[in-house]
Design a protein around this nucleic acid. Sequence first.
DNA 1: GTAGAACAGTTTTTT
DNA 2: ACTGTTCTAC
Length: 681
Amino acid sequence: MRLSWAAVRLDALDERQREAVEHGDEPLLIVAGAGTGKTTTLAHRVAHLIERGIRPERILLVTFARRAAAELLRRVDGLLRGGPGERTASARVWGGTFHAVATRLLRLHGEQIGLHPSFTIHDRADSEDLLDVLRAELDLGRGDRRFPRKATCADIYSRCVNAREPLAEMLDRAFPWCKEHADGLKLLFRTYTDRKAEQRVLDFDDLLVFLDGLLADPAAGPLVRGRFDAVLVDEYQDTNALQADLLERLRPSGRGLTVVGDDAQAIYSFRAATVRNILDFPQRYPAARSVVLTQSFRTTPALLEATNRVIAQARERHAKELWSARPDGERPELVTCRDEEQQTELVIARVLERREQGMDLRRQAVLFRTSHHSAQLEIELGRRGIPFRKYGGLRFLEAAHVRDLLAFLRLLENPRDLVAGTRVLSLLPGIGPRIARALLDPVVAQGAFAPWRAARPPAAAAARWPALVELCEELSAPSGPALPVQVHRVRDFYAPLCEARYDHVEARLRDLEQLEQAAAAFTDRATLLAELTLEPPRSTQELAGPPSLDDDYLVLSTIHSAKGLEFDATYVIHAADGNIPSDLSTGRPEEIDEELRLFYVALSRARDHLAVYFPLRWYDRPAGVGGRHSYAQLTRFLPPDVRAAFDERAASPEAARADAPPAVESGASAAIRKRMHDLWS
DNA sequence: GTAGAACAGTTTTTT
DNA sequence: ACTGTTCTAC
């Protein structure tokens, strides 16, 4: 008798995991607590589906980040090895984020709903830039009360679209201080929608909206739906209303749909994600089966005791208590420090001590609420030559010089892209927004650079003008040079402009060289641009390629960017009220609850060792002559009964003083286009 | 109209 | 500390 490969591998699973893996076609909700083997279960389920005869290319795996899909599919490949001849699941399964999958499907089928297949994608910053241009055009900037800044406008727009909520309600609920500008915002968003259509540009939200429209189309919809037999969605708690609707259009009865998530780890409501999706899944799909995974394979009982107590403070949640069969380990530590310097000192000492004991730096992570919380630690690590990688915060693509170079490439790809064009032209001396616009209008109208040949730019720009026109015409020609050559030519043109404009020119030019090398991996310009926009590299090193195995570095990460990861040792720093929860998110109870879940996500990354650091003294301003500081309070998420699960340690006599000074809070596509347009009327 | 300086207001998390 | 806005000199 042939012992099924699947049966053998299933032995490694616990009963509930196996139930989830072997579940049939009915809709399936897997509620997977932190560290309960979610990835293992998902990987086994995908392998199981393939073993049952579903072709890999008919499986869609939606994850929060592409790297998560890649990691999962690698494990599927591992499970299938020696199985029924499938070794390349990872190459054939559709995997990626909602946005990446939408882009791929829209390039394949978008023309059926009248979408030009060569659309370019605007990232968040591009959207803001366009909104800013339109705000000026519409004369919304002036008035007695200041109009919301571009970032806020982009935020409001995106939230309305993703939450599928009318502007008035959204303003009421989340942006009450902008209510008086409702009419201006409507006008702005209507114009924004129209302008994107003229420029053949889709923003992040459009990718989802147009995929939704594609699926709703009577002709194209069935075609797209028919591509897939199984759809699996990871991190379902962080999906929004639009994404949930999209999934329902993809699998109307829910058959073949598997969603996995943990409502206790929902941390993206600021991106319009809603826990309601996971909580209401059984109502949306009455045939759904729910499986709850509660055995943690990650964390020791001592650490679970603490994390369970932390999350128990949440007001609304699926009550579930995680347990662990691992041997009891060391209790978590709560370390009160005198100030940030001492915190840095203690964290580094502990990290090095553990490395001495054989724990690679890569198995250790320092987590924090906001990107700049690691600034001092980064400086000290740099000073001591301790290698680290930082995740989250200002990324490679956000650097001005990188945006400049990409603007060139986007303009070449799509001459109608006004945002890209304005950025490029403004690099030339003597050209500002006004002249850029005048030069761009005929190009936008024609979709080609020909009008520039006869254009007469201001005297200051005249010297460089012929070279720019030649560059644009040659590189935008269909038979243009290979991609790395294109990047190289742009770089040659741009380098002197970069030097004239910015500091740290050598470092910036090195980044661009890296970009040129990375370009060799892409077949064409459109793919390069889409990939960089949808899944931006998080550092220059990442652009250069994956770290080699003998590369060791300490992980520094925002809590958001650490989602889904685990580390042998986790150090959570700046656990002061005002940092966790963030001062900016303590307005409404739901916000505080999300901050609590965020803290829970941080704590639940640890396998064996967990320490929370709390610096008592908090500098409001950079320490200098009379540097101002106040005394912070421990995060409200560690009240005495929760703290009881921690070993408390005061790192200095001052921190131990019972009569510490009084704490001071530290401050306080045409139908779709039309529908989108009508949203704002 | 552009560019740079001076000033004012705000300050998170990310596809 | 940084971003965005306003003012002023070209």
